[in-house]
Design a protein around this nucleic acid. Structure first.
Lengths: 194, 194, 194, 194
DNA sequence: TATGAATGAGTATTCATTCAT
DNA sequence: CATGAATGAATACTCATTCAT
């Protein structure tokens, strides 16, 4: 029994160590050898804990989502106005912009590489999307669920700008866009409630 | 007298033939052999017309952008209200949704694969982004340039939803999201003008 | 516990196995697949032990030089007259004529193929040249270092005759030329000492 | 008939233009396209005048030999002492050192690349060797034919030093070695005549 | 549990040569 | 005569995965 715990604990440790490696290289271009080296283990060990590269990535997606959700709710207080709650979401996104646009690119990369695979890959990402929608809906308390989707779409659109070379240095632009979104959502919500 | 082939014309023909191939396989996973076979030529011939896989892609990006721009302006009339113009943009995006989300995925894939290359790759995509912004600004005649960016960000966000398995079948959802965006932009613009 | 293989020992074994393969085909024309097949391993294994074709060759040059030096000193006794020592050098060269002209051709081939590379290639061969000069100077105890260079130049000239089709069958001619060289060097040395 | 003369004239012109190209790139690494481009013609034209890369090289070897022989005899006067004649040979070699070591490397390269070919390649080079020996014997008027061989071997040895990075800048060293050779040959010849 | 040696099909790209025009 | 488009087998090198120890 204790052995099992250790195994599980170590597996998670390795898993979390993978994000930076994937982020630095991309899902498609990093090799299992590079991952193993980056983690300080042999390829054999890596395969002892994970059945494949794909599997590492899918487990990582889940694990990170759980962690991010906790982090967000830990820092976001609930007793606020809608505007403040929207601002909290935007701030969280902007604080972790670098991280999230790496994640977005990684996900697209992963989908492209897994093209002819079983479909589990898409299911895995879709599930995260839906849980995000649902968590966000709970937190924001908007009357229109489409508005929640709209926010998620907007944030995805924001992160993907990284491919045009927009990075952490364009913070002001990101801020500006977020303000636009917030004001639009608020106006929309007000209209819906009258 | 050389073998009679209009080099430039044939190059373009091959180039356009590449899009479906890239779209079907992804930039990273398709091989030059597959491209050549798909075009019905030998790898040697492919390299006679293009110096590298990367070059094919970058030329394709430019070429498609020119074509799409012409297509859009050919079908969009200008003597309309803001709402109608926004609707025209949304309609164009939705009509070509399948095409554009393939394009978006392809671009991310390309950026991920070219990670440690010269930066020309990002420059190439960035240029298209800026020309898109500029064309859209001219067409929509919005008073706030940030609003144009917002629209582009939103559309990018929309196309990238493909990674969660949203495809042509979710047309209604895409419509809904576009309506939201249009109404928000209109309200925003009205406020700016008073 | 890893698979039990003495990495270093096996690397050397493979390395020495390469000489005959290179000699039989030339550096430029032999392929990594042919080398691997000739050694009885896969290309993957070959690359597990050596980073590149160039690296195999450069390591081989060093390794062979060490071996040849030991072999020579093992068979050459030192308590002799100058003539006997010169004869020992000539005998060694002639006994291994086949081997040395293969080596000379291989070296030229290698330099030609590496033309626009880093210069490490030439440095590698140059180093062997200088260590040869130095070992020969120690052994022969000639008063004029230029005379040592002269001998090395002559031997290089001799080995390169292979390109005109002179091979092991022309042993008498090689002998004759060596005798000439020996007599000339002796006369020269005698003159220098008076 | 005049057409034939033009054809032949043009062929030679192209041929002579090839040396620098081969010298700059090596026989094995230069491509037919590069040769064609360097000559300012198309590959088709190149193949119109020469059946193959190998053929270009073999024709070039012959042509250059004829030219070099004429050049040498044009500049070397005959009514001199043995020492002066030897000096004339050495001067010629040293003046054209760059050219000759490129040639030597090219020949070796050629032999290595043509390994499994018909043997005509070696025959072609061997023939040049013999004609060189014969021309040199005539000019120098040495009593011992082996001494002529010795000189040619020495010069070949000298030129091949290029692979160790010795180039035009080591002129003094080349001079020194030539002086050694000259003195040795003279002494040898004097002894033979008494 | 952990290692790293071994595999071999697969990658982008090259090149001597041919041949229709 | 001259062109350059076309070929496709061949090149060095890579990589996810397996498995003996």
């Amino acid at each position: 029994m204790p052995k099992v715990v250790d195994h599980e604990r170590y597996r998670r440790e390795l898993l979390m160590g993978c994000f930076d490696l994937f982020a630095a290289q991309g899902y498609g271009t990093i090799t299992m050898r590079q991952i193993a080296k980056g983690l300080g283990v042999s390829t054999g060990t890596l395969y002892h804990y994970f059945p494949s590269k794909e599997s590492i990535f899918m487990q990582l997606v889940q694990e990170l989502f759980e962690r991010d959700l906790s982090t967000f709710f830990a820092q976001a207080s609930e007793a606020l106005s809608l505007e403040e709650r929207l601002q909290a979401v935007a701030d969280f996104a902007l604080q972790n912009a670098q991280y999230y646009y790496q994640q977005m690119l990684l996900w697209v990369d992963f989908v492209q590489q897994s093209r002819e695979a079983s479909g589990d890959e898409v299911a895995c990402l879709r599930q995260v999307w839906e849980r995000t929608h649902s968590a966000l809906a709970d937190y924001l308390q908007l009357s229109d669920p489409d508005l929640v989707d709209f926010i998620v779409v907007f944030l995805d659109g924001l992160f993907v700008q990284h491919i045009y070379g927009r990075d952490a240095e364009d913070a002001a632009w990101f801020q500006q866009q977020c303000q636009l979104m917030i004001q639009m959502v608020i106006h929309r919500e007000q209209r819906a409630q009258t």
